[in-house]
Design a protein around this nucleic acid. Structure first.
Lengths: 216, 216
DNA sequence: GTAATAATGTGACATAAATCACAATAATAG
DNA sequence: CTATTATTGTGATTTATGTCACATTATTAC
């Protein structure tokens, strides 16, 4: 249950962190970090999936889905006094609110830890560059294929999973309208690429999905 | 000429950095960091503008324009062994190649420095989130207005500046075709929002530009 | 200074996907 | 269990912008 960064901490530091942090449960839909409010905490996600989302000029943009274990809100907490994005639970979640001062102390005293945090931030930025390129250059089929691959490989780590988000959310994640998402998903199902019943989804033709991701 | 992070260094550290770094000049169009090659250096941009760009599935995406002083390639150097994006000079540039080991040592010994680097990374990530939202949600007029405002406020810090990039580059920066860029720019000029002759451009109606950025 | 190449301007046309409209189904609350 | 609300499916229509084609103007190279 420890993130790569958390593994760099000494037992004493881990102890200190646990003492200075507040564990809270959130249920589906609850807001964990809210855009526009003061950013005073780093959030450590222990259990449950969350979505990071930004209020765009016309609609909400879902930046990404994050699985535990992970630190949430680093860019928004260190980058500005005010949160630039929101984080919400998409299923029951358990998180730790870590006081920013405690976190800063750890960063300055444990260079292995701060190095690991730096690496994770860098990876996040690279990923966001890539996601943005895909979002702006591919068309809906390709973007949805990308999303399904990402879910299967990185978020759920399985070919079958339960999609706890609405098609509108999916649309906001891949930059497409709710209707287009619906159309393409049924198309995928008809073509035998995925199987859906209710909220659960199985990828049945992964090679084809890879192909659509590349050429769609 | 020092970045906020560089100001956190002690005179000895600055000395050590200068000793372990190689100053190189690049001319317009030259590649400073190349996507796909091994990432072994952090680059400190001393003089000249550069563009960060990524090879997308169909065309190049210009991620952003960066002005000195600035560290380049932090995400791509710390995030992976291989560069995930390219950096090219858009005018004559002077840069320092800093060996990654030297840079790592600085990070682990000077926590003020590493904290400042962390902050800059976070700001970069927030900015890239915002840029992506704008790119995907606004239409061409709005995106171009955004770009002009960004150039005027952050890059050139003046109402008049010389645009050393082609309309194709602009298109790749704001996600539009070269032709659309041409059409909208002449439209802006016709409407008295900007004045262009050759490569030099002046913003003449900033309020209108802000307005287009908000509603376009 | 002239040829060759690159960059820009503009019209006509094609097209992916948004929007609108409404029916059908699922989820939630009382 | 029924009513209400949220979510999904699907057709018809509209629209912003990409693509193609070609003329015009800069820029670069020899």
């Amino acid at each position: 249950m420890k993130s790569p960064a958390a593994r760099k901490l000494t037992p004493q530091e881990t102890e200190k962190l646990s003492g200075n942090c507040l564990t809270v449960k959130f249920k589906k839909g609850d807001s964990i970090i809210k855009q526009g409010t003061y950013s005073t905490n780093v959030v450590y996600l222990k259990r449950g999936l969350v979505k990071i989302h930004i209020e765009g000029p016309y609609r909400v943009q879902v930046v990404r889905i994050v699985r535990p274990p992970s630190y949430l809100g680093l860019p928004t907490t260190f980058g500005d006094k005010v949160n630039h994005y929101s984080v919400s639970a998409i299923e029951e979640c358990e998180v730790c609110f870590i006081d920013i001062t405690t976190f800063r102390t750890l960063l300055s005293t444990n260079s292995d830890f701060s190095n690991q945090i730096l690496i994770e931030l860098c990876k996040g930025e690279l990923e966001s560059y890539n996601k943005c390129v895909n979002r702006t250059q591919k068309q809906v089929r390709g973007k949805l294929a990308d999303m399904l691959i990402d879910f299967s490989d990185n978020i759920f780590r399985a070919d079958s999973f339960v999609l706890n988000i609405t098609q509108e959310d999916i649309g906001n994640l891949v930059d497409a309208s709710r209707e287009s998402v619906s159309r393409v998903m049924t198309e995928f199902a008809k073509d035998g690429i995925i199987e859906m019943n209710g909220k659960s989804l199985t990828i049945t033709d992964r090679p084809m999905l890879n192909n659509i991701s590349r050429n769609g």
